[in-house]
Amino acid sequence: MAHPVAFFEVLSPDHERAQKFYAELFGWTVDADPEMGGYGLVDTGAGEGAIGGGIGPVDEPGEAGTTIYVRVPDLDAALERAAALGGARLVPPTDLPGGYGRFAILADPDGNRVGLWA
């Protein structure tokens, strides 16, 4: 079964600057939500079926950076498989607001953050 990249995320200590940078660089629309701490959903303008994303503030030091989210059918199974392959669980399965499913985050053996979305 295929596991497509489904979402991207850019986290920054200055998320408003990052939102403006990417919007102006690529012509993306960023819809920041004050109720989510200024986190903004990104419309890349690439039409139906395009991968969407988000740009927002960091919650903890060391979170800044870019993360891809891969669609998987079972978060726990994917986290267990990642651990068996030398990865580590960073964020346990967590519900997303608005009924958008659940996510988790792992670190690959080199420490790169990879998101999982179910």
Rank of each mutant, 00 (worst) to 15 (best):
P61V: 13
Y39G: 03
R17V: 12
P34F: 10
G38I: 05
A107C: 14
R102T: 10
G45R: 04
V72T: 01
L116R: 00
M36H: 06
D33P: 09
R89Y: 12
A2F: 09
A64C: 06
M36T: 05
V70M: 01
E80G: 06
D31M: 05
P73F: 05
L11G: 11
K20N: 11
G40P: 03
F26K: 13
G101Q: 09
D95A: 13
G65T: 15
A78S: 12
V114E: 07
G52M: 14
G111D: 08
L41I: 13
P73A: 14
A2R: 11
H15K: 02
G38V: 05
N112F: 13
L85R: 14
I51S: 08
G99Q: 05
W28M: 06
M1L: 12
Q19H: 09
D59G: 10
A6Y: 01
A78R: 08
G86E: 10
V91P: 05
A46K: 08
I51M: 15
L41D: 12
A118I: 03
G111E: 11
M1Y: 06
W117D: 07
E60R: 14
L79I: 04
M36R: 12
G49P: 07
A32M: 00
A77Q: 04
G49S: 02
G40I: 05
E48H: 02
A82M: 07
L106K: 02
L116I: 02
G101R: 10
D95H: 01
T29R: 10
T67W: 00
R89F: 10
H15W: 07
I105W: 04
L96P: 08
D74I: 08
T94G: 03
F7Y: 11
P13L: 12
D31K: 14
E80L: 02
G45P: 04
M36Y: 09
R89P: 09
G54D: 01
V10D: 03
R17L: 11
A82N: 03
G56H: 13
G54Y: 02
A50F: 04
G111W: 15
I51K: 01
V72Q: 04
R71A: 15
A78I: 00
A83Q: 12
G98P: 15
